[in-house]
């Protein structure tokens, strides 16, 4: 939605900061995080699942409603729960094989502290270096049908300069479809506002994006 018009002012929470604005936000967050430890999906799959909410729902749902709906969808897609179970709230299918993975209270802190780095030693060779001018491709998943890419529409088909080479990282376009991590070089690319926008607020301002090598071609 970067660059979209019509959203109105940003509603700062200055003076009334809360970690979770409503009690159920915290529950939705925790249920999602805890379910992730079952190991049935990766981060890119869960992001993709949220993006696959119907545009109507995506527009009207609040933030944690999107998380919840994405979670329910992925739980069903991965056959962890069934639609019938969601209706009746009583267990119908066995899940013994998952029980060993259930996150316990005593392990929460250390499990979150462990993180899940996405950099990889292996992968494709870097084709670009700092200072190179590159042009982005179409903001569409080129590898797997069914969508998900991390190139935003507003930066599609635009030229910018590489300001940092960040090594190889897991490629979300394939990972979101369980089609492999396919690590490839990740670059930070700087785009001039006047290149991104027809009516830039200030032409010399920069917008930086982290983009995978296959999103880029030489100018």
């Amino acid at each position: 939605m970067g660059g979209r018009f019509g959203d109105g002012p940003v509603d700062s929470d200055f003076g009334r900061e809360h970690v979770f604005e409503e009690e159920w936000h915290g529950r939705a967050f925790a249920v999602t995080i805890a379910s992730g430890f079952l190991g049935q999906w990766n981060l890119d799959e869960s992001r993709h699942m949220r993006e696959c909410l119907s545009p109507k729902d995506y527009g009207r749902f609040s933030y944690y409603e999107k998380w919840l709906s994405g979670l329910a969808d992925i739980l069903v897609a991965k056959e962890v729960v069934t639609n019938k179970e969601l209706e009746t709230l009583s267990p119908d299918i066995a899940s013994e094989d998952l029980i060993a993975r259930v996150l316990k209270a005593k392990d929460v802190f250390s499990s979150l502290a462990k993180g899940g780095p996405t950099n990889r030693e292996e992968g494709y060779k870097a084709l670009f270096k700092v200072g190179d001018i590159v042009t982005t491709c179409r903001a569409e998943n080129k590898y797997v049908a069914g969508g998900h890419t991390r190139l935003p529409n507003y930066a599609s088909g635009k030229s910018g300069k590489i300001i940092s080479c960040n090594g190889n990282h897991v490629f979300p376009d394939s990972n979101a479809h369980r089609a492999g991590e396919l690590p490839q070089p990740l670059y930070t690319v700087a785009f001039l506002a006047e290149v991104l926008w027809e009516h830039p607020e200030n032409p010399d301002d920069l917008v930086m994006l982290d983009l995978w090598q296959s999103y880029l071609q030489p100018l």
Binding site: F29, A30, A34, S35, L38, S95, I99, V102, K104
Partner: peptide
């Protein structure tokens, strides 16, 4: 109910 999340773990995350 399915034993897939632990209610105390949720409290700990929050």
């Amino acid at each position: 109910r399915k034993g897939l999340i632990d209610s105390e773990a949720l409290d700990a995350i929050i």
